[in-house]
């Protein structure tokens, strides 16, 4: 056996366990779900009806649009706030900034279930805010529970720290010398931002957006506990199809639809990463 072949075999041997796990737990289920999604529930013959159901049934179509609305709003607001936070943490050197820099990651260590219940206790119509208002004779009912706005607020709680973490890392990689250089040739703050900082951090913004997008498309806990009855987010609609109606073929079709929605985002992520390599040449 040549030495090269040996090294190659050893390398394949090391990759093999991980490869098998991925094939068995990711690739195989995806393939079988795709196959199942084209099968008729009763006869098992080929059909598109599992897909057309989600695009023609008014309630299901609403679920789809509702999910996209909630997810896009979450992405836009989370990224906007996270970007401002990241700028602040990068360029302001004060004790307060340092403290915030340590504290803003805390939400990531709170279990999702606890966080959702904590939020419910505060924002529900008879919750903490209502009670504080009552002390001053005000009748504050926010109407956030069982409504898209409540879900979005909770999503922001989860996603702003995450997005800020990614963007802060990106901004941290911009050397001070670049900014000083721009200032030296007479660029104002706004000009420095638009022509230096923003272009240099846009890649991190896009990547953070794709991650926030993908994690929210299939979210379950938050919409299950805080969302209304209709329309529902797709994670809940999938749960209904699978656990409540026992419609396994339709569940498979909905899974594929969610997978496709996420793969658009994954495509953007891969494209952004490739572009960087191109630019670095």
């Amino acid at each position: 056996m040549s030495k090269k072949l040996k090294t190659n075999l050893a390398a394949y041997g090391m990759v093999l366990p991980a490869f098998m796990v991925v094939m068995l737990t990711v690739t195989y289920p995806i393939i079988s779900a795709v196959i199942q999604s084209f099968k008729d529930e009763k006869t098992g013959s080929f059909t598109f009806s599992n897909y057309t159901y989600f695009f023609t049934e008014p309630a299901q179509l609403k679920n789809l649009l509702y999910t996209l609305m909630v997810v896009f709003l979450t992405v836009f607001i989370a990224i906007f706030v996270a970007y401002l936070l990241a700028l602040y943490l990068r360029f302001v050197k004060s004790k307060i900034a340092k403290t915030i820099g340590t504290l803003y990651l805390l939400p990531r260590f709170v279990p999702a279930m606890c966080a959702v219940y904590a939020m419910i206790t505060i924002i529900r119509d008879s919750g903490l805010i209502h009670r504080i208002g009552a002390l001053f004779g005000l009748d504050i009912t926010l109407g956030l529970m069982y409504h898209a706005s409540g879900i979005i607020i909770m999503n922001l709680w989860f996603n702003i720290p995450f997005a800020a973490m990614m963007i802060t890392a990106g901004l941290g990689a911009i050397p001070d010398s670049i900014i000083e250089g721009a200032r030296d040739v007479g660029a104002g703050r706004w000009k420095t931002f638009t022509s230096m900082i923003l272009p240099l951090s846009v890649k991190d913004v896009v990547i953070a957006s794709t991650f926030v997008f993908m994690t929210n498309v299939g979210s379950f806990t938050t919409p299950y506990l805080m969302g209304g009855n209709a329309p529902k987010m797709l994670g809940i609609a999938l749960f209904d199809q699978f656990n409540k109606y026992l419609a396994y073929n339709r569940s498979a079709a909905l899974s594929v639809i969610m997978f496709l929605i996420c793969s658009v985002s994954a495509g953007v992520y891969i494209y952004t990463n490739l572009k960087e390599q191109d630019w670095e040449k």
Binding site: G143, H147, S149, G150, Y224, L225, G228, N229
Partner: peptide
Amino acid sequence: QSGGSHVYPA
């Protein structure tokens, strides 16, 4: 009712 619609909690 909450958030402008009738609600059946989970």
